[in-house]
Write a protein that binds this DNA or RNA. Structure first.
Lengths: 316, 316
DNA sequence: GGGCATATTGCTCATATGAGCAGGAGGGGC
DNA sequence: GCCCCTCCTGCTCATATGAGCAATATGCCC
């Protein structure tokens, strides 16, 4: 049975929010003092009967962001609303847009930005406005040029971001994963490659995304790994990959032999970074997001509401 | 491309509605004057970016009610919110509850209330509180006692409503539809039946629901009609039934021969009534609701938001 | 570039609202 | 039945907000 006050608070809420009446007017309609009306409305809000949503592709969820900052070690969290989103694509676009906004608003402006590559990062590059920053150099932090089927995507991403900021792009001229350890070591010690890696190590900020651990991963798409190899990694606890390296739910490398053959900055370099921005969205990436945030691989997370709630352990 | 003001209005809305900041505080955060913030918020509201919903089973939709009253000849409209409703059953329960509330609040209190029977009315009777009125006599306005499979539902409904109002119930001792015209005329002229019909004709208010025109109708359930007969009625334009009589989309009797054999008050008596309350909910009853409201068969409509919007021609 | 029409801004002032407090009603415990 | 404690009510007062208006900026035609 619903009590009288609750019912009255609903009647009051209808008149207040839907009919735009003042609390005083509502008072005379419901034969209550205006103070009682005010209290009923406060009660209705507190009980969660009044739901206020901001319906807009650019809307963020500040309370969720705050909770994320408070309950994790993140220095910042950007959470886009998933109200009214039909598909994952729309959600990813919103998240990429938010990441672009965050980059644009970033102070101090980073001199050098280290980036990974992939669908998400490419999306971010497209959402950045021309002139988003007055000069930022971009450097790739993991390999991936040659084998990429969607030719040049990795390079295009870096170049676009740099170009739009009137800066220079430095590409890492190497595959993401080498077949043999010796080859990797050889490439790594090559002067051109070593110079890029050095620049990457000294970047003032990092921006990267994560891949889910399954056959849809960009590393599979690009031909570096077979679906079977990924399935084996999953069996061994992989939840996803960042900068080409597969991690488990604790943020640890799953297969050190594979990792040795992966060219790019180390996870430890990300962990030590003052500013490492992870951009992650979509239901399939909840697990990898948890691993990244939980093990301190990023200092800033840009994500969607559902992922954020999954991290927070919300039931809804 | 989204313009700057729109984006600012979203940022302002986040701070105002989610972070409970004052417009002044928002002003200093966004580097705007507090008046600009106020205008941005007003703009966000006007553009529909701020959605305020009252989430409660007893919540009504006053703006929809007003539009219904204005665009139809109804003297009153009660529209329950369908936010957060999972199934039709929940919706019907909410609507029945609203009808019970409406009856309880009705002034002047009717001396005699003429009612039909059916699932909906039964539901209303259960939602009424004991002592909902200080004495109201209830009279059935259409037949339906004997054949009803759910034995005595029709009678129980009338008795419950009357009992809870400390009044007397008068049952109409007749089937809803007779097989032969002569039988119907004979019963109708029987003293006991005629007296009830006379009382029904003089009721100060009517309360009835409507059935959809398909095999799930209560008249089929009760055995008065076969699914085939209903199908034939549909073919001839029937959209539903009220007080046992099938009507088309104009509110006209579909089959006058069948109607002649139907015992109860005439549609014209409902149309002439000062107070005729129709209680209708569920997606399957949009058509019959339209017919009833459109042809003036009720003066008050109690319904759900979706049905109301269908009547108003809203797209959503 | 000048002048006009229109939109936008920053203000004053009236009003609506929430915080905090004093008095009073209700409801056990003895 | 009496008292005390708690919760609730209705108030005063400070603050937040929206309406309306003058001043200013913007765009547009010639």
């Amino acid at each position: 049975m619903i009590n009288t006050d609750e019912l009255m608070s609903i009647r009051a809420a209808e008149l207040y929010y839907e009919e735009n009446k003042t609390q005083d007017e509502i008072g005379s309609i419901l034969r209550l003092t205006r103070w009682k009306v005010g209290r009923l409305l406060a009660q209705a809000k507190a009980s969660g009967f009044i739901r206020i949503e901001i319906v807009h592709p650019r809307a963020r969820r500040l309370p969720v962001e705050r909770r994320l900052r408070e309950s994790t070690g993140l220095t910042d969290a950007i959470v886009v609303s998933s109200v009214g989103v039909a598909n994952d694509e729309e959600l990813q676009s919103r998240t990429a847009q938010a990441a672009a906004d965050y980059l644009t608003g970033l102070r101090p402006i980073p001199r050098t930005l280290g980036i990974s590559w992939g669908r998400t990062l490419h999306d971010v590059s497209l959402h950045l406005k021309h002139g988003w920053a007055p000069g930022v150099d971009v450097v790739q932090i993991n390999g991936g040029v040659s084998l990429n089927k969607r030719a040049g995507t990795a390079a295009t991403t870096a170049v676009t971001i740099a170009h739009k900021a009137f800066g220079a792009a430095t590409l890492l001229p190497s595959p993401a994963i080498l077949e043999r350890l010796e080859t990797k070591q050889a490439i790594e010690s090559d002067r051109a490659v070593a110079a890029v890696l050095e620049q990457a190590a000294g970047a003032s900020a990092y921006l990267y995304s994560a891949g889910q651990a399954d056959a849809h991963s960009a590393l599979v798409d690009s031909g570096y790994l077979s679906p079977d190899e990924v399935a084996e990694l999953v069996r061994r606890g992989a939840v996803g990959d960042i900068v080409g390296r597969y991690i488990d739910k604790n943020g640890d490398i799953v297969d050190s032999e594979l990792d040795e053959r992966t060219l790019g900055i180390q996870l430890e370099q990300l962990r030590r970074a003052t500013l490492a921005i992870a951009v992650i969205s979509g239901g399939a990436k909840h697990a990898v997001a948890r691993a990244i945030v939980g093990s301190g691989l990023c200092t800033v997370l840009v994500t969607d509401e559902d992922t954020a709630r999954a991290l927070l352990g919300d039931d809804v």
